[in-house]
Design a protein around this nucleic acid. Structure first.
Lengths: 152, 152
DNA sequence: TTAATTTATATGTATATACACCTATTATTT
DNA sequence: AAATAATAGGTGTATATACATATAAATTAA
């Protein structure tokens, strides 16, 4: 579906404005597809993101601040996302002994199992849904980074 | 900033997976920049989106359902966004006389003024921040629509 | 014409974003 | 060493997303 159909408008100032809206719409579309796949595992897209970050460092522990700076959405409220993962017993919280201000988070066995199963499912969903060749993907990555090149 | 730096990871399955994450991160980045610009006008990014949709049809009125299907994020809870715009007296709600189930929304004079001022500001922000040429933007739009081509 | 179904909107709940502020702990300064 | 500043994480509030359900009005079927 073209963007024009998706948002029922073709009044764009220029192609750049359209591209910005297209990025926003595509992100919403990707998130929706991911969430659908995660539903059977009882976790949200953001909770999955935190589990993935923990896995990336496993078996090392990682503090809340380090999780936060690895999140895609930088304003995520990590303590609260961890709350929900803790209730489901997918992660464990411990106060760091080196610095008692820090809370270190680690995956539980249940967390590892759930992450493995959901990753398999999500990877499959994303492959089915994201129809780009490797070359096109490289091109897209370049354009997105050019778009953001005003970022300091 | 490259995606690797932004999310402190370079463990991507392939370029397509990286592209999907890059779209999500770029969308967050764009929204953040937009929100910063809208702050002085006291409205959120989503409230601005609704005002823009109303302007697109002005002076025709438009019902809640028609706003919803024009939103970028299709699961937006339009009645609630309209609640907030109504409190600020930027829009007016009326029950349609032709179909009493429908609520038609229209911009107030204050809404029009605020929209004009904020659009000026937002357009400027987006131009400063989104560094793509017209040609690159066309290319990006094509790639995003290819990415989503599994959409039915 | 009444009953059943569909549609438009509103509302409730869980989770998330965005951001301000609080508290405990650590680091720095005087 | 005591006072001050900085840092990590938690918590409160407003708004949003996501989705289920409720309610009123309109449409369709019996």
């Amino acid at each position: 579906m073209k963007l024009e159909e998706a948002i029922k408008s073709n009044k764009f100032k220029n192609e750049t404005q359209k591209a910005a809206l297209n990025v926003l719409y595509t992100a919403w579309w990707l998130k929706t597809n991911m969430s659908k796949g995660l539903k059977e595992f009882g976790i949200t897209h953001e909770q999955y993101n935190v589990l993935r970050i923990l896995k990336g460092k496993y078996p090392d522990q990682i503090c809340v601040r380090d999780i936060a700076c690895r999140m895609i959405e930088k304003n995520s409220n990590v303590p609260r996302i961890v709350d929900r993962l803790e209730i489901k017993k997918l992660v464990k919280r411990t106060t760091s002994q080196l610095d008692k201000r820090e809370t270190v988070i680690s995956l539980t066995h249940a967390g590892i199992l759930l992450l493995e199963a959901s990753t398999k499912s999500i990877d499959h969903t994303m492959e089915t849904v994201t129809l780009l060749t490797e070359i096109e993907s490289i091109q897209l990555n370049k354009l997105l980074e050019k778009l953001r090149s005003s970022e300091r």
